[in-house]
């Protein structure tokens, strides 16, 4: 299947702040693509450019085979968008807002709409101003999920949802995926990304620093090993690819580059292993490695217009 989203070397500045700094991103048709990164990394800016709400300064962006800026209206017939910051019209009810968006996209599918209302447990008769943050988010989600658009662009869609609703959301996305539709899911909830996404792109300071399936990303990084050994853990620190080594009463723990796993394990064998646990890096650890180690620099990236 052709790429649903293809961005190369995209640059966008707001005044003196560079929000996107040579961003590359590819989302294949039919996949659920996780888009993760810290606040201000440029996730929302990317999405707004894809929606034709902002115009990139330089570089190339293509959405469903069209130009996001020039072909905005035609492309929007084929996608649905759920914003991260949901502001509803204070005097319109949730039901009215859901219908409005459905009609703008071509028509209301009543069965689907009512099903979603029930699953998300939303009262459609309340006015926009009286919904809580979570319920505002639900209105936007239902409006987006009620359409049969081939591409869903979701910007942190579950912020404000409770764990029960989070499960409903995951079910909905699984269904969308089963129908062969494409999803770009920007998220902070890493468990959600791990559970739903085929591929993941990690953005930092306006650049995608890593992209691939979770398995591929893990391969590039470190495995955490904890062991109890009989002999003193000599020589381990000198091995290449060992990080964060900690020794305590015969208990050792360290991270090892995945490519150095074999050497490390054979060295361990010589130490008299009594117990051994190893686990692949979680997405959280992947992310911390990518943008947790240089907090000062990451803060500079807090860019206008993205959150």
């Amino acid at each position: 299947m052709a790429a649903a989203i293809s961005i190369s070397n995209l640059i966008k500045s707001f005044g003196r702040t560079r929000a996107l700094d040579g961003l590359d991103l590819t989302v294949q048709g039919g996949e659920v693509h996780g888009y993760v990164g810290p606040n201000g990394a440029g996730k929302t800016t990317t999405i707004r450019i894809l929606l034709g709400l902002l115009r990139g300064d330089e570089g190339h962006a293509e959405l469903l085979g069209g130009d996001p800026w020039n072909d905005a209206v035609a492309l929007h017939r084929r996608l649905a968008y759920v914003p991260g910051d949901v502001n509803l019209w204070p005097n319109l009810t949730g039901g009215e807002i859901i219908d409005l968006f459905a009609r703008l996209r071509g028509g209301v599918d009543r069965a689907r709409r009512d099903d979603l209302l029930q699953r998300f447990d939303l009262d459609p008769t309340k006015k926009g101003r009286t919904y809580s943050k979570g319920n505002r988010q639900k209105v936007a989600l239902i409006a987006g999920l009620a359409s049969d658009a081939e591409l869903l662009i979701l910007d942190e869609p579950t912020s404000g949802l409770d764990p029960l609703m989070e499960v409903v959301f995951r079910d909905c996305i699984q269904e969308v995926k089963a129908e062969g539709r494409t999803v770009l899911l920007s998220s902070h909830v890493l468990a959600e990304v791990e559970a739903l996404c085929d591929r993941i792109s990690i953005i930092r300071l306006g650049r995608v620093v890593e992209t691939g399936s979770l398995a591929e990303l893990r391969h590039l990084t470190r495995t955490t090993i904890t062991a109890e050994v009989a002999k003193p853990a000599t020589g381990l620190a000198e091995l290449p690819g060992i990080h964060n080594l900690q020794t305590e009463d015969g208990r050792i723990s360290f991270d090892v580059d995945t490519g150095r796993l074999e050497d490390t394990v054979s060295h361990l064998a010589g130490l008299g292993v009594r117990a051994l646990t190893s686990h692949p890096p979680t997405l959280e650890e992947l992310l911390l490695r990518h943008y947790g180690d240089e907090p000062a620099q990451a803060q500079e990236a807090v860019a206008e217009g993205s959150s």
Binding site: L92, T93, G95, E96, I97, I98, D99, L100, R103, L104, D123, P124, T125, K126, K127, R129, T130
Partner: peptide
Amino acid sequence: ERPGPPRAARALGSP
């Protein structure tokens, strides 16, 4: 705040 209509009237379907 009174509850409002659960569905949009026909007119509310365009900008």
